[in-house]
Design a binder for these strands. Structure first.
Length: 378
RNA sequence: GUGGGUAUAGCGGAGUGGUUACCGCGCAAGAUUGUGGCUCUUGAGAUCGUGGGUUCAAUUCCCACUAUCCACC
């Protein structure tokens, strides 16, 4: 029988920045890694699993809440699980629904047992607690499941945060118990990552990090950042909390971020990332290049016959001009989004590959400075 | 040819005898961090078809012209 014997092996370091590999039955994940976001089992912008392969994706992220509502996790299970459903053979991760507690704040009520949502699709009542989230993620069959948490709003009072984090801890203990129960019957065990919360209160963050570190989870995420606080606050929290998470396990900064954010976080010891920014910006004509961000909708690109990024080797940059893609946006052709999403995801995945190489070569610090200087027009 | 309607920003439409003429789309510049392709913010752009008349004051009321639409020969 197969067992998902997971190994997390650190291959290189430069100060806190670490180069590591997480081995799973679905394949290895080389870190630092950017996980490409496929909320509803597809990258928005008309990309398929084939395209994900082309842009250098190692692991795709889908969402528990969204897939539970539509098409339903039982259906996905019947059809062979998330990976088979979307024809993606490499590792997958599912977000637990905790972020929807934040992003769908007007449509939910938080109770001790879990969260009552009104479906944003048809309004019907949905209950999700730790057990429900784990069951759904088990049905989806993702390689990595995330614990159910509350992504608390910013700003929040200290009193609110203390209550929220204590509840998130109780939910985490329930998540782990349920996942252990579900995994007991499975050959290919699902990994479980816990989530640190505490907003911008460093002491609450640290206390929580120490507490959840005792649970021997497969990885640890930092949630509840990039929700409105300043970049310097985010970096300050990373400086404070990362040292209190297990260093022999993956550290995942959820929902972050810009290329600059990623470099700063890698330097502080983070090795997993996910963010909607490259795909969403691409859909709106904002693309990342080795010389900074540019907005294709700007009139200046009307007759620009150069590629998005002259240093990029993605399919978009090797075939199409800025003028053509700008025209596609103006004409509202879906191809505009598709080409830009492919480019931006390639840019992010390639950035991570360059970061890994820099860490291996022991020159991450100078690599980071060079990048920040080159992007300074942002 | 006859009768009737209409003319306001690039386009489609509101509106008023009295400070700076409004809205949508489009255009231009932003925002977007565990995804709404949605949305939001800001800006530019108009001698109110042309000429004349009434009036203290006309984009608004009157006349002619031009353009355009509809109906009828």
């Amino acid at each position: 029988m197969w067992y998902n014997v997971v190994m997390y092996k650190i291959l290189g370091m430069e100060n806190r920045a670490k180069r590591a590999v997480l081995a799973t039955l679905r394949g290895e994940i080389h870190t630092p890694v950017f996980m490409n976001v496929a909320t509803a089992a597809a990258i928005k912008g008309a990309l398929s699993a084939f395209d994900l392969e082309n842009v250098g994706c190692q692991i795709a992220l889908a969402n528990t809440y969204h897939l539970h509502l539509r098409p339903g996790d039982e259906l996905v299970r019947k059809l062979g699980g998330l990976g088979r459903f979307m024809a993606w053979k490499k590792p997958t991760i599912t977000d637990s629904g905790g972020f929807q507690v934040f992003s769908l704040a007007k449509l939910r009520k938080i109770k001790e047992e879990g969260v009552y949502f009104s479906s944003h699709i048809d309004g019907r009542k949905i209950f999700m607690g730790s057990e429900e989230s784990m069951q759904i993620q088990s049905n989806l069959g993702s390689t990595i499941a995330m614990a159910f948490d509350e992504c608390a709003p910013y700003p929040a009072t200290r009193e609110y945060m203390l209550d929220s984090v204590a509840r998130t801890t109780r939910w985490l203990i329930r998540s782990k118990a349920k996942m252990d129960e579900l995994n007991a019957a499975l050959a290919e065990k699902q990994l479980l990552f816990g989530i640190n919360q505490g907003g911008t209160f460093a002491d609450i963050r640290i206390e929580h990090a120490k507490e959840i570190s005792k649970l021997e989870l497969d990885g640890y995420a930092i949630g509840g950042l990039a929700v409105g606080e300043s970049h310097s606050e985010m970096y300050r929290i990373l400086d404070e909390v990362v040292p209190h998470l297990p260093q022999n396990k993956p550290t995942y900064l959820m929902g972050v971020g810009t290329p600059q954010n990623i470099l700063e976080a890698v330097e502080r010891g983070v090795d997993f990332f996910d963010c909607v920014l490259p795909a969403r910006n691409a859909r709106h004509g904002h693309v990342y290049t080795s010389k900074g961000k540019l907005n294709l909708l700007n009139a200046t690109y009307t007759d620009d016959d150069t590629p998005l990024d002259e240093n990029c080797t993605c399919d978009t940059c090797t075939h199409f001009t800025r003028a053509y893609i700008r025209h596609l946006f103006k004409a509202k052709e879906l191809l505009a989004m598709r080409l830009c999403v492919m480019h931006n995801l390639y840019f992010y995945n390639n950035l991570m590959a360059e970061i890994r190489l820099a860490i291996e070569n022991g020159n991450f610090a100078s690599f980071k400075q060079n990048c920040l200087a080159a992007w300074s027009r942002d």
